[in-house]
Design a binder for these strands. Structure first.
Lengths: 162, 162
DNA sequence: GTTTGTGCAAATTTTTTGCATTACA
DNA sequence: TGTAATGCAAAAAATTTGCACAAAC
């Protein structure tokens, strides 16, 4: 699937969701979805707001918060709260389930995947008699550079700070 | 270990931490620690503030935020951000490593434990060349009551709402 | 033509900060 | 007594809300 295919598909998913829920198909909602699926990695509302202000389509923060809620409902995005007060989001369609490892030095977010998590999730659900819909696993640690000389070896800038 | 033993022990740990870091042993800090170790389950700063206001020792919110930071540093409490804007905390001493399952209906937090997480944590650390200090796993799901008749079967009130 | 969604600004909520005062060392 | 910690109140940051207007349906 090309990036364009993905954009068309998520547009279709949003359209169907809006119709099913009898919500209106506003240009803002599709512009926001398009912008989100043009971005890389995690993003916060303020970053999204600035991106859209600088580009083609200008929307208000209120509309962003509103639309993000809709996109969460139809699983087109995922919300994260990595121990900060500010929520981060990421695209969810066509992005395989993965978890996160955050460098405590530079705050860069790495992704990894371990199939055993699905088993843990399933087993915990059975034991506690829950239908588990999703999980959120985040590891916090220090890279070898930090361990050796106190300086981060990958040199990423903190997320959302530049 | 009795609850009193635990309180004495954490007091000792805090004392040693304060001495090591050359911080002052103020009565506020010990009163806050005592109050935290008198509470059950997760708590937020506001709840802690009200608890202390109603009880023996009155402290300012600023001091609570300050002290919570100190207690995090010496691992006497853990901070959680369960997808809300408000941070939650819990006691960490003598409470075995566990993870959380949150009911999407009543928001009650259940605890569970799976040793495989330690393996995942270790393996991810090796692959990504990180020294993992801690992890945070939260499962989100619906209990059987919600699945069957839309009503939560355990009937807990939402956390921090009553 | 209704009614929902948007934009703006004000309000809320949570956390942080500045500064005068208190009290630990 | 010197300096860090506290309390207060103001500021900041993130999100939510109220309301007039715009635009889907």
């Amino acid at each position: 699937m090309t990036p364009l295919d993905i954009k068309n598909k998520v547009k279709q998913i949003l359209t169907e969701h809006l119709e099913a829920k009898q919500l209106r198909k506003t240009s803002e909602r599709f512009a926001i979805l398009d912008e989100i699926y043009s971005m890389q990695g995690h993003f916060d509302i303020e970053t999204l707001y600035v991106h859209m202000k600088n580009k083609k389509y200008q929307v208000s923060r209120a509309t962003l918060y509103n639309t993000v809620e809709v996109l969460l409902e139809c699983n087109l995005i995922i919300k994260h709260q990595f121990g900060k007060n500010q929520a981060l989001f990421e695209k969810a369609y066509m992005y395989r389930q993965h978890d996160h490892l955050i460098c405590q030095d530079c705050e860069h977010v790495f992704e990894f995947c371990d199939p055993r998590l699905q088993q843990i999730q399933q087993m915990a659900g059975e034991i506690l008699k829950f239908d588990i819909e999703r999980h959120s696993l985040t590891l916090y640690g220090k890279c070898q550079g930090v361990q050796k000389n106190g300086k981060c070896s990958h040199g990423f800038k903190p997320i959302n700070k530049g």
